[in-house]
Design a protein around this nucleic acid. Structure first.
Length: 419
RNA sequence: CGGGGUGUAGUAUAUCGGUAGUAUCCGUGUUUUGGGAACACGAGGGCCGGGUUCGAUUCCCGGCACCCCGACCA
């Protein structure tokens, strides 16, 4: 993409109405636009990042048997009454509205009911199980206080998978697989080293759930981590009994602030009962389906990556989720610079290497450098009179202080290698 | 939901009970081009409603919006 065609512009000043680092950087760099408190649009650059994250998650979910679909945002009141979660006294984060004909609808804040209701039509035999449907969708929660930019919004984008298994054993097997898939996801998006699988409360569903918590001061949770074992305990279940059952000792744990980037739950028959979600086993007996839920907020994950990976100049995207792999800067109005940078741009596109080309004519070198640092694309390639005189193109990683001059061929070789 | 704070050009801010200033951004022109270039000219502003006052952007009341702390958080 040519930067001259990208309508977003970077901002020099930090927004006055945002304090959180993720919102500040993402707004300054032109990834998101604030619509109201806790509600953000994703601009071209932001959408590219979300798409990258989405594809990583999709790949991992498909690997463990997930099958993608799409549930609706508008929710049927009657369906939620079955599980007793329509009442505002029970769930206080509903956005609800009226239909013109007088009926009521809600905007989905989670998907258990929708999936249970749909799957009831298709599950009737043990031969139909297990199944693992999931979707990516926008979710709405009427939070009394949204905060921290895109870390806690009223509208956000998430992935939710639900497991439908014949029994506890089959459920447990998938549950363990999902843990590994989640670990892979966080590893791939570049925050694996800061993300701990954390024992947490299972709420009203089960004794425990597992959260994936990324260490950051911007987080909302306090967890106790065991660095050697790579696991943690949420403060909400930090008791002697739990420590003992997990074989952890207090003296090996360190208290940290963290943000929950994913959460997996065993649901048991909490939803299959009210929805009468049963199947016939081999003996012709009716059995309740055993369920699990596996959530992951993509927008929160994107915000977390920014919180954790940036410096005083801007964002430092891991290559796996960066909007582009290469930021190509053409400096000056020299004809050779134009010719060579155009040529390089075309060649990168031809090879399928994602590139943002700063082809703006009247923009100074300093401004282009500052923009490149702020936007945070992994590789910066400079074409200028000076670089050409020195023998080619200057390439610099966002994480490095100084670049080096390389020839056209060496540059292509470098950028073609998979990391 | 409890507490605290803030609303002034697109953005960031200053001052002020009496013609609202600066930077940036935007437009035009000239000179520039390796770390947010320089000069000139130009365009652009007081959240909404009420009150006090000769006069309110400023003071008072109400509303709305936004931020922060806490509560909450499948």
């Amino acid at each position: 993409m040519k930067q001259s065609q990208l309508f977003t512009k970077t901002k020099k000043e930090s927004p006055a109405d945002e304090v959180s680092l993720n919102a500040e950087l993402l707004i300054k760099a032109g990834f998101i636009n604030k619509e109201m408190a806790g509600v953000y649009s994703f601009l071209p650059l932001g959408l590219l990042v979300i798409n990258k994250i989405e594809n990583i998650i999709r790949e991992e979910m498909n690997n463990i048997g997930g099958i993608e679909m799409k549930t609706t945002v508008l929710q049927n009141k009657e369906v939620w009454e079955k599980s007793n979660r329509w009442d505002d006294e029970v769930v206080d984060i509903w956005f609800k509205t009226k239909l013109k004909n007088g009926g009521e609808v809600g905007l989905s804040f989670t998907n258990e009911e929708a999936y249970s209701n749909i799957l009831k039509q298709y599950i009737s035999s043990y031969k139909d199980l297990p199944i693992y449907p999931y979707d990516f969708k926008n979710i709405f929660r009427n939070e009394t206080r949204s905060k921290s930019g895109i870390l806690r919004g009223r509208e956000f984008y998430w992935k939710a998978l639900y497991s439908f298994s014949k029994d506890e054993a089959e459920h447990d097997e998938f549950y363990e697989k999902s843990k590994l898939a989640y670990k892979n996801i966080f590893q791939k998006v570049g925050i694996g080293h800061l993300t701990y699988m954390t024992f947490a409360s299972g709420g009203s569903f089960s004794k425990f759930s597992h959260e994936f918590q990324t260490l950051t001061g911007a987080g909302e949770d306090t967890i106790y981590i065991n660095e050697n074992k790579g696991i943690a305990i949420n403060k909400e279940v930090y008791t002697d009994e739990v420590l003992e059952s997990l074989g952890l000792k207090k003296e090996d744990l360190i208290e940290k602030r963290a943000i929950e980037v994913g959460n997996i739950f065993s649901l048991g028959t909490k939803f299959s009962e009210p929805f009468d979600l049963k199947y016939k086993n081999e003996k012709g007996e009716d059995k309740l389906v055993v369920m699990g839920s596996y959530g992951l907020g993509l927008t929160r994950l994107m915000g977390t990556i920014v919180e954790v990976l940036s410096d005083d100049k801007g964002i430092i995207w891991p290559e796996s989720v960066a909007p582009f792999k290469v930021h190509l800067l053409a400096l000056g109005k020299d004809e050779n610079v134009k010719t060579e940078s155009d040529k390089l741009y075309e060649e990168l596109n031809r090879k399928g290497i994602e590139v943002l080309f700063d082809d703006r004519i009247d923009t100074s070198a300093g401004e282009k450098f500052a923009d490149a640092d702020l936007i945070g694309i992994p590789y910066r390639v400079v074409v200028s009179k000076r670089s050409l005189a020195d023998g080619g193109f200057e390439v610099k990683k966002r994480t490095e202080a100084n670049g080096k001059i390389v020839s056209f061929d060496d540059l292509m070789k470098l950028l073609e290698t998979k990391n």
